[in-house]
């Protein structure tokens, strides 16, 4: 045995280096596992917030040619000649509610402007307003699904 195993105290090293490394590795693995579990723990499985899929009322509530703002849902629902469509009122810049002015939309916070399809006309918003899928429930209710974004070509024919 080499001398570096025997410290000045004269006592033999109580733990072998390999065992020390093994223990350290185990503790490290436990820490990583704990951190991963904590991270997963913090991702909620159930959200106590309004459903992402909801009915906004019978289709007849939205007469042809109308645009209706639903403030609680932060959503505009339109009924055009070729069908229904829904555009989010949440500005893609920093999350303020956009206002339907003239044929387009304007954000009161940072002056973003959008055309009637929600496309950006004037910054600072980085992208177009979101469009969401509409469907018709068996009871002729219009149903919006916020987890199903669609392109501006979307129309629901009632």
């Amino acid at each position: 045995m080499t001398n570096d195993r025997v410290p000045p105290s004269g006592l033999p090293d109580p733990v072998r280096r390999s065992l020390f490394a093994l223990g350290g590795l185990g503790l490290g693995a436990a820490t990583v596992g704990f951190l991963a579990a904590t991270f997963r723990f913090l991702v909620p499985n159930v959200l106590y917030e309004p459903s992402r899929r909801f009915a906004v009322g019978p289709a007849s509530d939205f007469p042809p040619g109308s645009g209706t703002f639903l403030p609680d849902r932060r959503l505009y629902v339109f009924n055009s000649a070729d069908g229904f469509y829904a555009i989010s009122s949440v500005c893609t810049h920093l999350g303020c509610n956009v206002k339907h002015i003239g044929r387009g939309f304007e954000c009161p916070c940072h002056g973003s402007q959008f055309d009637e399809n929600g496309q950006v006309v004037h910054g600072p918003a980085p992208k177009a307003l979101a469009w969401y899928a509409l469907s018709l429930s068996p009871r002729a209710q219009l149903v919006v699904d916020l987890d199903q974004p669609v392109s501006p070509e979307f129309r629901l024919r009632a």
């Binding site: 913090l42 991702v43 909620p44 959200l47 106590y48 917030e49 309004p50 992402r52 916020l146």
Partner: peptide
């Protein structure tokens, strides 16, 4: 953002 808010919108969580 989702992790920070604990959801899609700012609420109780």
């Amino acid at each position: 953002k989702f992790l920070l808010l604990g959801g899609h919108v700012i609420g109780a969580t």
